[in-house]
């Protein structure tokens, strides 16, 4: 620090505490709501201190059957699978395509690069109907394949790996070749272990990405068996105005957002690395 001015330090902490309050506030409210019984929330003023009903609300969320929504555990299961398949799939296909683009020279290489690049310019939101039609024609509606495969192509992950491979000294591959390693062996023995940190960082980012998906599952699932948590809590909340059960809905919302939030808190270093590097 260049100088030490007490009032400036005070101001700094004041600003940060205000910031943290703003950021935490909605989630705090949700947490509080999830610890009260149904009556405490419908009586006009929402309480600001925790109640004792958290466990009951959680049990209710986990056990009750709501109309038009799959059981909570099933949706959680679907979300988990969707996030995992997307994470693994994206990393797998990105790392091998980056490998091909960096370590081989083949006709069509630049074209392949540009085709991958184009995906950046085509978010699901701008091609809703035709993509839905393709998935429907392939018979992939209401399936894990339909939920995940169309989201697996990834320019950002490919670029991240490409960028990383370019920083590995050329001699590494030459030494491996002199040592008798072919392309697959080099990939397995040298490149993959060297990419560990990048893969871990991407895992964090992509798991969160997969978990958050909303529009896509909304389009390709009509069978509640394949609903994800994001769809489920939205559906629960949508009927809440008519049938105010905010306590259980908030309990569900808190549970639904918990896994990625915990990942960010406990893997902050990887999360930051992943987020910053994929944007390079």
């Amino acid at each position: 620090m260049v100088e030490n001015r007490p009032w400036l330090t005070f101001l700094t902490h004041f600003v940060l505490i205000c910031g943290v309050v703003i950021v935490v506030f909605p989630v705090y409210i949700a947490l509080i709501a999830s610890t009260h019984g149904p009556t405490a929330l419908s009586s006009g003023m929402m309480p600001l201190l925790p109640g004792a009903e958290l466990w009951n609300n959680v049990v209710q969320v986990l056990t009750e059957q709501r109309r038009g929504v799959a059981p909570f555990w099933l949706m959680a299961w679907n979300s988990l699978w969707m996030a995992i398949i997307i994470t693994v799939g994206k990393i797998a296909i990105s790392i091998i395509s980056a490998y091909a683009i960096v370590y081989f020279r083949f006709p069509g290489r630049v074209l392949a690069f540009w085709l991958i690049f184009i995906t950046l310019m085509l978010p699901v939101e701008v091609r809703i109907i035709p993509t839905f039609a393709v998935v429907a024609n392939l018979g992939m509606l209401n399936s894990y394949a339909g939920l995940t495969i169309p989201l697996i192509a990834s320019a950002t992950a490919t670029f991240l790996f490409r960028q990383f491979f370019m920083t590995i000294p050329d001699e590494m591959m030459e030494a491996a070749r002199v040592d008798g390693a072919g392309p697959l062996k080099f990939f397995r023995d040298i490149l993959l272990p060297l990419s560990r940190t990048n893969i871990a960082a991407l895992c964090v980012i992509l798991f969160i990405y997969g978990w958050m998906q909303y529009l896509w599952p909304l389009l390709v699932t009509t069978d509640p068996k394949y609903y994800t948590l994001m769809m489920g809590v939205k559906r629960m909340a949508a009927v809440a105005d008519a049938d105010p059960q905010w306590n259980t809905i908030m309990a569900a919302v808190v549970m639904a957002m918990l896994p990625p939030v915990l990942i960010v808190i406990f893997m902050q270093r990887l999360f930051v690395k992943g987020l910053v590097e994929t944007e390079k």
Binding site: A92, I93, S94, I96, S97, Y99, A100, I101, F104, F106, G108, R109, A112, L115, I116, I118, T119, L122, V126, R127, P130, T131, A133, V134, V135, L138, I149, P150, I152, A153, S154, T158, P183, L184
Partner: peptide
């Protein structure tokens, strides 16, 4: 080999990104 390596990414890109965008 390089074609095999880029194939999964390209197939998904073409089927689920480029084709629908063209449509």
């Amino acid at each position: 080999l390089p074609y095999l390596l880029v194939a999964p990414q390209l197939i998904i890109t073409i089927i689920f990104f480029i084709w629908p965008a063209g449509q």
